[in-house]
Amino acid sequence: MTAETSVYERLGGSLAIRSVTEVFYRKVLSDDLLAPYFDDVDMDRQIAKQASFLTMALGGPNEYTGDDLRSAHAGMPDLDDKHFDGVLGHLADTLRAFGVSEADVSEVGAVADSVRNDVLNR
């Protein structure tokens, strides 16, 4: 059933992605472990990048390359798995809040997990 349309389409496309991204980003900024890394970050640029990433992770139309994911995180050598897992957790919670099924949450989580080594500079 779920193979017919992407999670992206079922959520409502690009308009919904803006709301999903905002809810997701709000969760990340509310997390004491993660928030300090965003203190000096331009919120609009960040949300644009995350919207672009989420579109990809949710199976939407995209030309996401992730080339800059490694360079964007290169200046944060103390990032480790607990930070990355924290972000994945907020992504999963966000999707659940939008009524995404557990099967789809795992699937999207697996796609997001594929950039772990880029983010953690390994």
């Binding site: 690009s14 308009l15 919207a51 672009s52 139309p61 995209n62």
Partner: peptide
């Protein structure tokens, strides 16, 4: 431009004359 699907809004420009169509104003 970045996402090319209307999510990031990086490619926003202004129409001086003519209608870019309703899709282009989404969100």
């Amino acid at each position: 431009s970045a996402c090319r699907v209307g999510s990031c809004q990086a490619c926003m420009i202004r129409s001086v004359s003519g209608d870019p169509g309703p899709d282009a104003r989404r969100g």
